[in-house]
């Protein structure tokens, strides 16, 4: 079977426990979650989750159908079957003695990332982009010593006027 990454957007009623219902479903049915993000949507009372999952076409179909069985789920869209914009944000606290800073800033500039905090011995780099881009900058910053890394997970939507 052909295992691929899928990005799914799930519009849900903003009810207590709805995240638990969705996450529980993935766990229970053996679907995997690479990342999950939740936040308000364009409509009051509704939240949108963006879930990245890995699996074959059958699994993807089951994921969507099972999600629809949750009463608080209103719409499920397989974003990755469309042209989409997918972005993730990462904060990377990297060791940075004053002497090393110019070199690190070079990496930051190349990735159009930003330095959002400077401490005596470290910097916090904020990077926004595709997951691949975040992986790449993380890789490049590793030699300087990453003290802490936090990533939001992917949020995404379909390009153009299609909703």
């Amino acid at each position: 079977m052909n295992m691929t990454k899928h990005t799914i957007s799930v519009l849900v009623n903003n009810q207590p426990g709805v995240l638990q219902r969705v996450a529980g479903l993935f766990g229970r049915r053996g679907f995997n979650i690479d990342s999950i993000t939740v936040g308000e949507s364009e409509e009051q009372g509704l939240s949108r989750m963006v879930i990245v999952t890995t699996g074959d076409e059958n699994t993807l179909e089951q994921v969507q159908k099972q999600l629809y069985k949750i009463i608080d789920v209103i719409k499920v869209v397989d974003l990755s079957s469309n042209p989409m914009v997918a972005r993730e944000l990462a904060l990377i606290k990297v060791n940075a003695e004053p002497a090393m800073r110019p070199e690190i800033l070079g990496v930051v500039d190349t990735f159009r990332a930003a330095v959002v905090d400077i401490g005596p011995h470290s910097l916090i780099v904020q990077a926004v982009g595709s997951s691949d881009k975040i992986d790449a900058i993380t890789e490049l910053l590793k030699p300087y010593g990453i003290r802490e890394l936090t990533r939001t997970g992917v949020t995404a939507m379909i390009r153009g006027s299609q909703k």
Partner: peptide, 14 residues
């Protein structure tokens, strides 16, 4: 009990 029964109910309310 809402949490415990989430996987075995069609819907639940607190």
């Amino acid at each position: 009990i809402v949490g415990i029964t989430m996987p075995i109910t069609k819907q639940s309310y607190l």
